[in-house]
Computed example of a mutant assay.
Amino acid sequence: MREVLGHRCPFPTLATKIAVNKGRHLYHQGDLVEGAYSLATGLVALERVDENGELVILKILHRGAFFPCADLLGSGTHESAGRALTDVTGCFVPAERLNAALHEDPSMGLALLKLSSAEIRENEDAIFRLCSTDLPDRVLSTLNSLANESGERASNGDLSLTLPISWRDLAAMVGTGPEVISRLLRRLAGSGRLSFRGRHVTLHAANSRQGTPPSYS
């Protein structure tokens, strides 16, 4: 979606600036859709309670995200919750303002369709990665994405971050369980790909560039 938006709000004349503290919800699963959000800084988790009552993180949104397009155009209720993993800033576009603008200016509708298309492509890409890449690569890719947004890069190229979600949440995101993640992290640490203490993780640049990664099966 960043290719569509960059980091700007797509409808600035309709929007109100917002700031949400870490841990607070932008909206809850089942709430009526009151509008859409454009994320300027911070990270937001889209999460859903499954049929067993377990909370699962479906996706982590980064700056440049405009969401939730599907809910905005759909049934009128939020299918998932949006929770700030870090302090968040951005803008909020009320649904009534957006609907009025869509009737007055057809180009607004085209812009919203492009944003919805970008959201669908991102979801398809996430499903593809889940089905086509092996578990170590999925874990490293997810950690790298989070570190690029909220971590720090050392002079030697290493990326460090404090994970904004639990290891259990990360396991659910990459399609496995916490016990498997625990074993995999030890193997990745043993091979020099990363080091970790609690939720503080360092991804080692030198080892990530050394040819074909070892097998973790």
Rank of each mutant, 00 (worst) to 15 (best):
R2V: 07
L5W: 15
L5V: 14
G6Q: 02
G6I: 02
H7A: 10
R8D: 05
R8K: 10
R8C: 01
R8P: 00
C9L: 07
F11Y: 01
P12A: 00
T13H: 10
A15M: 00
A15Q: 00
T16Q: 06
T16D: 08
A19Y: 02
V20Y: 04
R24I: 05
L26F: 15
Y27R: 03
Y27V: 04
H28A: 14
Q29D: 13
D31P: 08
L32M: 12
L32Q: 15
V33D: 06
V33K: 04
G35D: 07
G35V: 15
G35S: 10
Y37R: 09
Y37W: 09
L39G: 02
A40P: 01
T41I: 00
L43I: 08
A45W: 11
N52I: 03
G53A: 06
I57F: 03
L58Y: 09
K59E: 13
K59R: 07
I60M: 04
R63E: 10
G64K: 09
P68M: 11
D71K: 12
L72I: 13
L72H: 03
S75F: 02
T77R: 15
T77N: 07
T77Q: 11
L85K: 06
T86H: 05
V88M: 05
G90S: 13
G90F: 05
P94K: 04
E96A: 08
R97G: 10
A100Y: 13
A101D: 10
L102S: 05
P106C: 12
S107P: 02
M108N: 13
G109K: 03
G109A: 04
L112H: 01
S116V: 01
S116M: 09
S117K: 05
S117D: 13
A118Q: 04
E119V: 13
R121A: 08
E124R: 06
A126E: 14
F128A: 14
S132W: 01
T133W: 09
T133K: 14
D134C: 04
D134I: 04
L135N: 07
R138G: 06
S141Y: 02
N144V: 01
N144L: 15
N144Y: 14
N148K: 03
N148G: 14
E149H: 03
A154V: 00
S155C: 00
G157F: 00
D158Y: 00
D158P: 00
L161F: 07
T162G: 13
T162Y: 06
L163F: 04
P164A: 08
I165C: 03
W167S: 05
R168Y: 03
R168T: 11
R168A: 10
A171F: 15
A172V: 08
M173F: 11
M173A: 09
M173N: 13
M173G: 10
V174E: 08
T176G: 08
P178L: 00
P178R: 02
V180Q: 02
S182A: 15
L185I: 04
G190M: 12
G190P: 15
R193F: 03
L194T: 05
S195N: 06
F196W: 10
F196R: 09
R197F: 11
G198N: 12
R199E: 15
T202R: 03
L203T: 02
H204V: 03
A206D: 05
S208G: 01
S208N: 02
Q210K: 13
G211Q: 08
T212F: 13
T212I: 09
